[in-house]
Amino acid sequence: MVILNEEERVALRSIPANKSLLGRAAATLAVVAGLMASLLTGIADAHGSTTDPPSRNYGCWQRWGSDFQNPTMAQQDPMCWQAWQADTNAMWNWNGLYRENVAGNHQGVIPNGQLCSGGRTGGTRYAALDNPGPWKTVTKPRQFTLTVTDQARHGADYLRVYVTKQGYDATTTPLGWNHLDLVATTGRYAPAGQYQVAVNAGSRTGRHVVFVIWQASHMDQSYYFCSDVVFQ
């Protein structure tokens, strides 16, 4: 599905109404060709996210990307609904939630309550991801394999995987560093389409948030992902 921004809508509206049918068709095709070129460029420049368990915005895109205007989302998936309403680009750009030049000082740069948006990276684009509420969960065993998908094959200096402490309630409390335990950290990964890490959640049960930092290798670029899970 191609979503037109305002500039693109204006371009289509600006095609003179008095053009011949053939002329209007040719002009419309020219605009569409430009849109496709832009879309392909966006894919080439894409980045990545945690895809298993899915990050909040990747999950929203996965479930609703082809049906994002469906009003039943408000009842069936209210947290995705509020995120789509706040800024559709948070889902269309599910692979772009990163900050640059953090220099490893993640806790100093990302404030409590803003971990899922990467400290409001991109202005307010991802801010809705910080909101507590009944985010859709996936069920995982306490020992599982986590997957980060890297569309641009940036490589990774490391992955850090945190899991919330027992008793934290993601439905009522924005995520803070004080809610997390570091459960896995890795070395470098050569550039590839996916990076995986074994995660052991210990004795945790019930609803939790898995928080991932992916430090890309091609430059000082840090990605931050929140995934909602239920441990059996």
Rank of each mutant, 00 (worst) to 15 (best):
A25S: 13
Y195N: 08
Y158H: 12
V138H: 02
G133M: 07
A190P: 00
I15F: 03
A33T: 08
Y58L: 05
L4C: 07
A90K: 07
G42I: 01
T147I: 04
F231K: 01
I3S: 15
Q215L: 03
T149R: 15
F231G: 04
M1C: 12
K165G: 07
W81H: 05
I110Q: 01
P53F: 04
P71W: 00
T185W: 05
A83Y: 07
D181Y: 14
F211D: 02
H154I: 09
W61M: 14
G123Q: 09
E100I: 07
A198L: 13
V138F: 06
F211W: 08
D67F: 04
T173C: 10
L39C: 10
A103T: 00
V183D: 05
G118H: 02
L39Y: 14
T88G: 10
Q62N: 13
S20W: 10
Q143H: 07
L146H: 08
V10Q: 10
W64M: 06
V163L: 14
Q221G: 05
G59H: 15
W92I: 15
T185E: 14
N93I: 02
H218A: 14
L35G: 05
G118E: 03
S117E: 00
N95W: 12
T41C: 10
Y189M: 01
A127Y: 03
L22H: 08
T28Q: 14
A156I: 01
A201I: 11
G122M: 06
N95V: 01
R99C: 05
L35E: 06
H218K: 13
V210T: 02
R56I: 03
N112I: 05
Q69V: 08
N200A: 01
D87F: 08
N89E: 13
R120N: 15
T51C: 10
N131H: 11
A152I: 11
